[in-house]
Structure formats: structure tokens, C-alpha cells
Design a protein around this nucleic acid. Structure first.
Length: 500
RNA sequence: GGGUCGUUAGCUCAGCCGGUAGAGCAGCGGACUUUUAAUCCGUUGGUCGCGAGUUCAAAUCUCGCACGGCCUACCA
């Protein structure tokens, strides 16, 4: 790999060069002053004065104080230009002997790209039309000892972008935009819920019994209590306890942890929205989800039609709703109803596809595996898949007509699962039976099967009102809205192998 | 975990058939008072990811290892 820490002779010399400059700075006073206060963000200046011509600016002679990282520098003898970048954008500085005196300008010439500087001066427009600060005072606020990535291409090395995200953020505007969008997406989701009377809560990240999802947990240990704890795989069971407690509309946006593989769609810690509303069912959730996604798209992108990896996604149309077998037949019309309800046929198909299945799987489980293998990746336009088999849905309410299936859906967009929702199972005796099933599966070696959670059963015994609940993978949503091919592109510090 | 591709100066990249390294940016020195990836002249800088092997000779061929990208598996 690229070694980012060890000092090669060259890097050492570049750093030494800058370190020597820092040593000089130390001699002439505080090298890390913290008494410069800016009064303007660069984007505000562009917004307020972007339309003013030079005569107007010169007449106003508005004095501004700006600060930021120097990202471009052009020295021309007795005058110089520099571009500084702050959290909002960039602005050009004009420095000359006439304005600051020769020695200050001379000092500036030895400042390096990457240095943090503060400047004061009046706004004007250069003859090429760029809004700039005619600097009368310039200070080096923080010396940068390490050279920045190349100013034009920025940082392109994927690994370094992830490991040293600050360099990616300094040099790549696209990256800054992605994380600004991430914030906007989460914020608009939060507003969506708050507006509808939901209460935002935080439930434990450390669980004595991991539950709420079929997944392998991270294990840890509490010393004082001398007990094992697990990082949560889902907040579900706690949130439903809150509904029992009378919080009839709750949501949580927080991290989940799953001790599983890492890929372009999976990070060991990821952000999940879960929400629960009493006296509603899964049909309501699907409608609700459509409205929410449309609103978020509108707020973040300004449109409900957008492209992801060069294919169009349209949130304005009603989302398709299909059962698992309907979805299979839509993409593979050769399968008949009789075949899809024939256990031997399904097993045969899966074997042809070289896909393993659990020996305990019933018709529903086998159908779902076939769906996962042959259809899931093809669901590009938003599609709700409904009627999940009860055997793979231990927390979902059974369907009134067919108890083999549950009132549950998953939402697929761009070939990926984005959401999972259902009418909640609020029958404590059925839930206890389902937990026992899970415990049996775990006994039989299924590492992802759930534990029997007696605390949760006890809560249900006090009475969980009929409730609908859903989880939405926020990172994957952000990937969609920012056209990011990898989940690592939407998580500031994605998990990587240790660099050493 | 499996497959596959990659790793050359601080950064962005050349270097293809083996003859022991190059450009641009950054740095340093110089010219230049409206440039904007400023320009022009000069110049420093590399045990070519690590370790073996083949060879008179390896950045280049072979094998192993490390790390990363992509695909795949588990999953959201």
C-alpha cells in the first residue's frame, strides 16, 4: 500500500522545509495565534456582492475579514494572488507591496499551500471580473507542515480518500457536496417525522441480548458489571417497548452494528432510521414511505426524478407493489404458479443456481431465496415486495387470511433493499413461540437467528397496541441521492483494514 | 472468505517487448504590480508496496506476502 506515515527522504525534506519556516515563526512571536476573528464567510460575500460591479465595490470600500486554507497561490513580483477556502467556499486575495508593505508581502511569498491564513481588506473586482479582497492585513494563523495533494487533480487514490478523509475534503468539492447532502437528507427526514407528531428518541447501543434483526453482533464486555454486552444490530425491540409505554409515534436515527462482511453496500456500522406508529399497518407504511421519499428528494435534489449510476429513477410515479412470486414471474415468466409452490421444484432450481438453502426452509423461505437470487438486483425502479413468509419474519404480524405469510414489505431501489417494514406482531404468545423457533435455529447453528428475549415478551404482555414499524437504511438512501457507487463514499470514515 | 485488477517522487501520472527511472504540480532560487490549474528560466527530490526467485542484468518476468479498488458470499 501507499505508506502515509513513514517519512521518505523526499517527504522529510518537504516537511523539513516547512518546519524550518515554523521555527522562524516561533522566534517572532506566537506561531499559533488565536486572536484573529473573521466577520465573513466567503460564500456570503459572493452572494451579497456577486452582482456588484467594481465601481460599486470601490465606492462602498467594504472592509471584510476572512480566513481559511490557502489552496492556490500566484506570485508576480510586487503583487500576488491567493485563493483561500473556508467551510462555505473560496475567495481570491490580492496582496501587493503597495497595500501591505514589502516585508509583509515578502513574508506571504514564503507561505505554503495548505497554510491557514486570515486576511483583512476591502472588496473589489479584478479586471477579469473576479470578486476579491484587496488585502491590507494578512496573518498566518496555522502553519501547515505537510504538502497538500496536487492542486488540480486533487486526491484520487480511493484508499487515501477514506483513510485521510480531511485531505479528500480539502481537495475535492464533490466529496464536500456528498456530505452536505447527507446532512440535508437526514435533516429533512427528521423534519418529516417531527412535523407529523413523532417523538425522536435514543435507545441503547449496548444490548445484553442482541435482537431486532437476524444478524451477527459485535461482542464486548462491561467490567464493573462483569457482563457481556453486544453492540446493537437493531433498535427495534426497545422502540416497541416505548410504544408499549405510550410513545405511540417514535423514531430513531442512529447507528447499528453488524459483524458481517464489508462491501460497497455494507459497512460494519451503518445508520438506520426506525420508526413506529400505533394504530397503523404495513399498507399505511408503504404510502407513508412513498410520500416521505418524494418529499426528501424534492428538498435535497429539487426534483423527484434523478439518475443513479446513469439510470433514471422516478419517485413521482406510484411505487410498484408485487408479492414475491409475482416479482419472480414478472422477470422470469417461465415459472408457473404450480412450480413456485412445489418444494422439490424450488430446491431443484436453487441447486441449478448453485445457491444454498437451509434444510429447514419451507416453501416461503425457498421462494424468498429464489427471489433474492434472481430478481432483487433487477428491481431498479422503486418496488415494494410484499407478503413475506412468516418463517423469515419472526417479529412481523401474521396475515389474517394466510397465517403462513406476514403483513410485511421490503422496498427495493436500484437493485438494493432500502427499507423493511411490517405490521408488528403484538401477540405475546405468538411472539414467544417465534422466539423459541429462532432459538432452535440458533441451536442448530444459524449464527444469525435471534435469541429468546424474555424482557421483550414481558413488555408485549402488558399490551403493544396494533402498530406499524419500519427501518430505512440511511446510508443507502444517501448513496441513491448522491449517485455514489459505494457506501464508503457516504460515510466519512468507513471501516478499512488496519494500515500498519 | 473466494475471484480479479492495482501499488513508480508529497500529489497526478508515463515508463509496453528485461539494459539498474521520467513529466507536470508542489518545494527551492531567479524574472514579473490584475493573476486565476498564472507564465517564463534554473534546480533539489525516488532502496519503483514488501520479500524471495529466474537472469550477466528486474520498476519491467515468476512466486509469496501486505494493503486497496471492483465483482462475489453473509446482510441493510
Amino acid at each position: 500500500m501507499h505508506d502515509t506515515d513513514a517519512k521518505t527522504p523526499l517527504e522529510a525534506s518537504l516537511v523539513d522545509e516547512r518546519r524550518a519556516k515554523l521555527t522562524e515563526l516561533r522566534k517572532s512571536g506566537n506561531a499559533f495565534p488565536n486572536d484573529f476573528r473573521r466577520d465573513s464567510l466567503t460564500s456570503d460575500l459572493h452572494r451579497q456582492h456577486g452582482a456588484d460591479d467594481n465601481a460599486t465595490l470601490e465606492a462602498a470600500a467594504k472592509l471584510v475579514r476572512v480566513a481559511g486554507r490557502m489552496v492556490l497561490k500566484r506570485v508576480m513580483g510586487k503583487a500576488s494572488f491567493a485563493t483561500i477556502q473556508d467551510m462555505s467556499g473560496r475567495i481570491q486575495l490580492y496582496i501587493s507591496n503597495d497595500l501591505t508593505g514589502e516585508s509583509a508581502h515578502q513574508a506571504f511569498k514564503h507561505h505554503d499551500l495548505g497554510d491557514i491564513i486570515g486576511a483583512q481588506g476591502a472588496l473589489f473586482r479584478t479586471k477579469t471580473g473576479e470578486l476579491s479582497v484587496r488585502v491590507t492585513q494578512l496573518r498566518l494563523l496555522t502553519k501547515s507542515l505537510r504538502p497538500l495533494p496536487e492542486k488540480f487533480h486533487g486526491l484520487t487514490d480511493q484508499e487515501q480518500k477514506y483513510r485521510q478523509r480531511y485531505l479528500d475534503l480539502i481537495t475535492n468539492e464533490e466529496t464536500r457536496k456528498v456530505f452536505a447532502s447527507r446532512y440535508k437528507i437526514i435533516q429533512s427526514i427528521r423534519e418529516f417525522f417531527v412535523k407529523r407528531g413523532y417523538l425522536e428518541v435514543e435507545t441503547p447501543m449496548m444490548h445484553p441480548i442482541p435482537g431486532g434483526a437476524a444478524a451477527r453482533p459485535f461482542a464486548t464486555h462491561h467490567n464493573a458489571l462483569d457482563m457481556p454486552l453486544y453492540l446493537r444490530v437493531a433498535p427495534e425491540l426497545y422502540l416497541k417497548q416505548l410504544v408499549v409505554g405510550g410513545m405511540e409515534k417514535v423514531f430513531e436515527i442512529n447507528r447499528n452494528f453488524r459483524n458481517e462482511g464489508i462491501s460497497t453496500r455494507h459497512n460494519p456500522e451503518f445508520t438506520m432510521l426506525e420508526f413506529y406508529e400505533a394504530y397503523q399497518d404495513y399498507i399505511y407504511l408503504m404510502d407513508f414511505t412513498e410520500v416521505m421519499l418524494r418529499e426528501v428528494a424534492e428538498k435535497v435534489l429539487g426534483t423527484t426524478k434523478f439518475t443513479y449510476q446513469e439510470r433514471e429513477i422516478d419517485f413521482s410515479k406510484p411505487f410498484t407493489r408485487l408479492t414475491i412470486t409475482q416479482a419472480i414471474q414478472k422477470f422470469h415468466p417461465q415459472f408457473t404458479d404450480t412450480q413456485l409452490s412445489d418444494r422439490d421444484f424450488l430446491i431443484d432450481q436453487l441447486q441449478t443456481l448453485k445457491v444454498s438453502h437451509k434444510p429447514r426452509d419451507g416453501i416461503g423461505g425457498l421462494q424468498l431465496t429464489l427471489f433474492d437470487e434472481t430478481v432483487e438486483h433487477l428491481l431498479f425502479e422503486p418496488t415494494f415486495i410484499i407478503d413475506y413468509p412468516a418463517e423469515v419474519s419472526p417479529l412481523a404480524r401474521r396475515n389474517d387470511i394466510n397465517p403462513e405469510i406476514t403483513d410485511r414489505f421490503e422496498l427495493y431501489i436500484a437493485g438494493r433493499e432500502i427499507a423493511n417494514g411490517f405490521s408488528e406482531l403484538n401477540d405475546p404468545e405468538d411472539q414467544a413461540a417465534r422466539f423459541l423457533e429462532q432459538a432452535k435455529a440458533k441451536e442448530a447453528g444459524d449464527a444469525e437467528a435471534m435469541h429468546y428475549d424474555a424482557d421483550y415478551i414481558r413488555a408485549l404482555e402488558y399490551g403493544l397496541p396494533p402498530t406499524a414499524g419500519e427501518g430505512i437504511g440511511i446510508d443507502r438512501l444517501v448513496m441513491l441521492f448522491t449517485d455514489s457507487p459505494s457506501i464508503r463514499d457516504v460515510i466519512l470514515f468507513p471501516q478499512l483494514r488496519r494500515a500498519d
